[in-house]
Design a protein around this nucleic acid. Sequence first.
DNA 1: TAACTATGGTTGCATATGCAACTAATAGAT
DNA 2: ATCTATTAGTTGCATATGCAACCATAGTTA
Lengths: 154, 154
Amino acid sequence: MQELDLEIDLEKSLGPWLGKTIKITDYYLHEAFQQHGLDISKEQMIVLGKLNKNDGLNQNEIADLIWRDKSSLARLLAKMEKKGYIIKRQHEQDRRVNLVYLTDSGREIFRKTRPIIQKAINILEMDLSKSEINRMIEILKRIQDNFTRELKSL
Amino acid sequence: MQELDLEIDLEKSLGPWLGKTIKITDYYLHEAFQQHGLDISKEQMIVLGKLNKNDGLNQNEIADLIWRDKSSLARLLAKMEKKGYIIKRQHEQDRRVNLVYLTDSGREIFRKTRPIIQKAINILEMDLSKSEINRMIEILKRIQDNFTRELKSL
DNA sequence: TAACTATGGTTGCATATGCAACTAATAGAT
DNA sequence: ATCTATTAGTTGCATATGCAACCATAGTTA
């Protein structure tokens, strides 16, 4: 929800500002990765991060962690596998399941994204105090809860 | 920037929360439009809103207003024209330019999205005071400025 | 054991998006 | 007046995303 324009004064609503903020942070990461010669998208980096923390997850688990549809995740993984960042291994007991592992190359590129990510976080929270950050997060969580509730009664 | 996972405790950073909030609000709008039988996407609705406020903009102007690439906007317009929500007319003096106008049908569907959008705004700002909203907007603007500045020095 | 159900993953179809290369047309400069 | 540069818009190629239908496998139930 960004840019809902009505007579209702939209610029005073939160929606468009949230959208634009995300857009700029995404663009920043994209540019930074590119300028460091890292052949990776933000989304792929997020997947690498999950695997780096917890290797050998299956596809559905990863999809849940990153709030994406399993089909979207499957396509991300296909690209990442082609680039050699991850490998999929069939689960020994349950042959439906693919367990996903980082390769050395995947681990390496994730390592290289670290300082870039850290810098993005620093910029994002540049002039916010710890308590302001926590307050913002609280508010965002509440907004999410409100929408979730309203969705159920839709 | 949502979900950057590192040893650096990510869940305490603002990024993922912003991303997830947008995701849920987008999903809410999508569901609400669908349930009201409105054959329109959020992005198309945003374009209709701009035209509703200011009919006869050209494509680049619209693209700027909604922070999208002109190619993306061109494709949005193509779909909207096919559905009969807008029409494009060549500028009389400058034949490179397309001026874009709402059709009656486009105006009508935008009218129908109004209460849905208003409700989404209400949910979004449900338990925030006016001053909190303004504070949040201020913070988001500052974050955007910070990223813009860093992008230049990248 | 056979039949039904639930689960993990893939694929078709659709949306939106950006960059870069391209065309057409206007504006500017020599 | 002609050549050049700029501008508006389109298109190819690529990314990411979700839903629904589907396949294969596993689990459950009759």
